[in-house]
Design a protein around this nucleic acid. Structure first.
Length: 377
RNA sequence: GGGGAGGUACCAGAGCGGUCAAAUGGGGCAGACUGUAAAUCUGUUGGCUAAGCCUUCGGAGGUUCGAAUCCUCCCCUCCCCA
């Protein structure tokens, strides 16, 4: 079983703290989950991920891991945990995001989605059943239902049809889930995903149907795909108010530090996003006082620490001028330090959020933080 | 001393009579990035009183309606031979 216990709730908002217990350990919520698509968080060592960023759970991706290294190798390794040596919880995305991001090289049908591999062009059919099987082979603690992450903008007819398909796929996923056993002796949960684009009635329908399934946790997908931020908050709020309070709520693919604080206030418990790692590799540094583009000339002689108050090794070990130098010179330490810092920052922000919820001052704290976090330095 | 090649924007390097303020790379500067086809991609990179004008292709002259491109002289690099 995957257990979730709500511990503290905020009076002024829907924010709450909680603990998710999995067979690979506990996860304190609200939490940010670093993305490790191919079984590795890009530019990061697990040692640093554990010690410096304090990551509690990471993501993997069904589509990518299926293509490389493939389920045969993963099974022979004894699952992804054994393969990559990450002994804490792992959540795998189902490939639903690739239905969106690789839209130009897939064919979507009622039965499932046929992808043309971005690596060698070979064709692969992803049905809901197949996606569950693959996630069983990967051995993720939390598996995601196969869905279509709809693009934005998305006309209502398309969104409505897509939602029907996603729900049928969900039922097939659950059937396959119940018909199969974990391969490595520990429990695997399955989270359904609410869809419906930016249409309130579709989202309500989706959230209600999914709530009735009584899954161990529930996710909201199809957001942060280019819609106005206010739409994202509006839909998140709408859905959070319907999804069961006693189960973790996971907002997929979100987001910026500000997005996360706003959505914690709406009742979200789990986040993941490539932003701290990808943008970090591209020179964007998130700090308590705002966002830095470390490649900018203005940092060339700023010898102050990356984050003087920061608690990760890299924050005080390296100066902004040095980090800029590494980026300008194309040294791989640049992206590594930036990724470590950004993840440490994201995880620190979650920790602060939890503390402020516990202390009953979340909303005030959030207001003061939001102003600083979005500042461009 | 003899023979040959060449000097183009920050660098490398195309262009060899008009469509050239000058391809392409690199470098510089800036921007983008939200369940990762990303250590990626995009824009910009002579000056200005800016849909136009001015000064640029080693230097000085010349031919021409028009020259980075043709001619003359000069300066400077590099290669081969002695």
């Amino acid at each position: 079983m995957l257990r979730f216990q709500v511990q503290n709730t905020d009076n002024a908002s829907s924010a709450r703290t909680g603990v998710i217990t999995t067979d690979h350990g506990v996860i304190e919520t609200p939490i940010f989950m670093p993305v490790g698509t191919l079984g590795a968080v890009k530019a990061m060592h697990f040692k640093d991920l554990l010690e410096d960023t304090k990551a509690q759970i990471i993501l993997g991706n069904t589509y990518h891991l299926y293509l490389r290294p493939g389920t045969d190798i993963l099974e022979r390794a004894g699952g992804l945990h054994r393969f990559n040596g990450w002994n804490k919880p792992i959540l795998t995305d189902s490939g639903g995001y690739q239905v969106y991001s690789l839209a130009h090289r897939r064919k979507l049908e009622q039965e499932g989605v046929t992808f043309q591999s971005h690596i060698d062009g070979s064709r692969h059919m992803f049905s809901p059943e197949r996606v569950i099987d693959i996630q069983r082979s990967i051995g993720a603690d939390i598996m995601m239902a196969f869905d279509e992450c709809t693009p934005y903008p998305c006309d209502k007819n398309y969104a409505s049809d897509s939602l029907k398909t996603t729900h049928q796929w969900l039922l097939r996923c659950m059937k396959q889930y119940k018909a199969t056993e974990p391969k490595y002796g520990y429990h695997q949960a399955l989270f359904p995903i609410v869809q419906g684009s930016v249409y309130p009635d579709l989202r309500i329908k989706s959230a209600e149907e999914i709530s009735a399934l009584n899954a161990e946790g529930n996710a909201i997908g199809g957001l942060s795909v280019g819609e106005p931020i206010e739409k994202m908050y509006e839909i998140t709020q709408l859905v959070c108010n319907i999804l069961p309070k006693d189960k973790p709520r996971y907002l997929m693919g979100v987001g910026t530090p500000v997005n996360m604080l706003e959505c914690i206030a709406l009742g979200i418990d789990m986040f993941d996003c490539v932003m701290p790692t990808r943008n970090g590799r591209n020179g964007m540094i998130f700090t308590r006082n705002g966002i830095i583009n470390i490649k900018n000339e203005k940092w060339k002689d700023d010898f102050s620490p990356i984050e003087a108050e920061g608690n990760s090794f890299v924050d005080t070990q390296y100066s902004k001028a040095y980090l800029r130098h590494l980026f300008v010179a194309g040294e791989m330490n640049g992206p590594m330090i930036a990724s470590t810092h950004n993840l440490a920052f994201y995880l620190w922000l979650m920790n602060e959020a939890r503390n402020n919820i516990r202390n009953g001052v979340f909303s005030e704290w959030k207001s003061s933080m939001v102003k600083k976090l979005a500042t461009r330095l």
